[in-house]
């Protein structure tokens, strides 16, 4: 029987971690006598941002983390960030296979699966958002909390200087008015209780979560073919299951928020198109620049974009 050790980037109580843990349960059920995943813990065991290095160096065999936490080493993860597809489509069209190949080449990692996809980010504000004459969002005077995922968009397009706060400090920062707006995924605002202070959700949502399971390549190759098969199959199944589970959860969260008075404000017309295009293009730009600086170059750039972004799906 093979044993695979694992850590996850976020605390155990967060919804995304629960999703990963249910994947682990499924593997351990299907893999009886063949392969078992042994979870060593979350950020209390290895720091959030140190986990990608830990799996690369073989300290731990498997990590569940946003690709953005190792975006310096693998700028290609921005293809997932800007994606308007889910893991089900990118698995089918070969996008995930290419992502796996790039992980192997650049980091010596097996990219097992893109979980919890199909969830995007909104901008959430305390006060009613303001717009200029053309209907574009006006961010002057917004105290905006940032994060590695959407900083490029916020600062390069919206021209905002972000206040970078760890998730745990956002609640009191909102309470005291240190920040009055933040990006966050569609799900999870209620768990963090930020809805006590945030009253507006700005649509459209942008970006996508980029949480995935990465496995040390040497470890992967040392597993029996049977173990590999179980891990891969369960991962592919979980890619699909997690999309559905999180979509249901999103609808539930949105309904609860709206019942409690959350207002939804839509950007319209050109402003909407420009907003989405900017989120995408500033991020693509960062991706292309960083890719071209790496020894492997930016040869995969166009392929990645075409596999992870479908213009038709935006309409």
């Amino acid at each position: 029987e093979d044993t695979v050790t694992a850590v996850h980037a976020f605390p155990e109580t967060l919804i995304y971690t629960k999703s990963f843990l249910s994947f682990v349960d499924k593997v351990n059920e299907a893999g009886k006598g063949v392969v078992q995943i042994e979870v060593r813990g979350g950020p209390e065991a290895i720091g959030m941002f140190q986990q990608p290095d830990a799996v690369r160096d073989g300290i731990v065999d498997m990590v569940y983390t946003p690709g953005s936490f190792y975006g310096g080493a693998l700028p290609e993860k921005d293809a997932m960030v800007t994606s308007n597809l889910t893991a089900v489509e990118t698995r089918a069209n070969g996008g995930t296979a290419l992502m796996d190949q790039i992980h192997q080449e650049k980091m010596g990692l097996k990219y097992l699966g893109w979980f919890d996809s199909g969830v995007c980010y909104n901008l959430w504000t305390r006060d009613a958002p303001e717009f200029d004459a053309d209907g574009n969002l006006n961010v002057d005077g917004l105290k905006l909390r940032g994060n590695a995922v959407y900083n490029a968009f916020f600062s390069n397009y919206l021209n905002a200087q972000v206040i970078d706060l760890p998730t745990g400090e956002v609640y009191s920062a909102l309470q005291r008015g240190v920040v009055d707006a933040t990006g966050w995924t569609q799900i999870g605002l209620i768990d963090l209780k930020w809805n006590e202070f945030l009253n507006y959700r700005i649509e459209p949502c942008f970006f996508s979560t980029d949480l995935g399971v990465i496995v040390n390549n040497d470890k992967w190759n040392s597993l029996s073919p049977e173990a590999q098969k179980i891990l891969q199959n369960v991962a592919i199944q979980h890619e699909k299951d997690s999309v559905e589970a999180l979509r249901a959860k999103r609808d539930e969260d949105f309904a609860a928020l709206e019942a409690a008075g959350m207002q939804v404000v839509d950007l319209e017309g050109d402003a909407r198109v420009n907003y989405l295009a900017a989120a995408r293009e500033t991020t693509w730009e960062r991706m292309k620049t960083l890719m071209s600086e790496s020894p492997q170059g930016d040869g995969n750039y166009d392929t990645l974009i075409s596999l992870y972004y479908d213009p038709a799906a935006d309409r």
Binding site: F49, Q50, D53, A54, D57, I59, L165, P166
Partner: peptide, 17 residues
Amino acid sequence: RGIGQLLNNGLGSLTKY
């Protein structure tokens, strides 16, 4: 290699606001 990870972990713990 665990000792290198140790330094990485220390870096994470000491760059907190």
